[in-house]
Design a binder for these strands. Structure first.
Lengths: 124, 124
DNA sequence: ATCGGTGCAAAGGTTTTGCAGGCGG
DNA sequence: CCGCCTGCAAAACCTTTGCACCGAT
């Protein structure tokens, strides 16, 4: 755990905004002005592999990262692109059960991405 | 509906392999040798906007396209990367119901991507 | 002294776009 | 004749990688 990795993890955990590598780069640079974008990417990859953070890969856009590794889903606003968390209550976690799909694949996981309109865009 | 668009749509509908733009480019070029990759992308975008085809955007990889627009999901093999269809039977469609998520977003849709091991990779 | 991690810069791969020309209406 | 669509090429964009250097063990 280098200084760089430590700061990246700390800054990411401060946020609930699911930043891109580039957005995080700008934030981390305030603490480590000489850090490079390559280092950001390398460490985000490491942290993700170590299970300390989560990659959020909505199709079409660029990769985003989430410091919250508790079980939850994401919803993306189709108007402004903002991504928010959706907490998994007992009712909704029960909804996706890998056992009940008809396929010859041996299922190991899934990604559920919700789409909708955020409160701000609903008013506009 | 130009000749180019027509051929692209026809070739895509022939396949169940969820090709990338580039893979489709190679196929379409056998019929229209002078077509450009830019035209492929432009038309796939148009066709998708018109609801005639479907974009399949698994996170992390490159964009894929599906000529089958009936309601179904996709499963990606985590070993070989192959993408297959999962037919939605009455049992599994009932599993995802937008009404039961706890969020302030007004939900309009979702994307469910399954991950697993395909029959071929299970043996290997 | 060694080794992993870093900064920097360049490369890489995919997708988008500007532009002039062509085709159909 | 007009306007849309094309082919071509360049640009744009995000991410990865090679390399020399540094810092800590």
């Amino acid at each position: 755990m280098t200084r760089q990795r430590e700061v990246i993890l700390r800054e990411l955990r401060k946020l609930t905004s699911h930043p891109t590598a580039d957005e995080l780069y700008l934030l981390v640079r305030e603490h480590l002005p000489r850090i490079s974008l390559g280092t950001i990417y390398r460490n985000l990859e490491e942290l993700s592999a170590a299970g300390l953070i989560q990659k959020v890969e909505f199709g079409g856009g660029q990769r985003r990262f989430d410091g919250d590794i508790t079980d939850h889903w994401h919803v993306k606003c189709t108007d402004c692109g903002r991504i928010a968390d959706v907490s998994p209550d007992p009712e909704s976690t029960a909804q996706v059960s890998l056992g009940s799909f008809r396929t010859e694949f041996e299922l190991t996981g899934y990604r559920l991405e919700l789409m909708g309109t955020c409160p701000a865009c609903q008013q506009a």
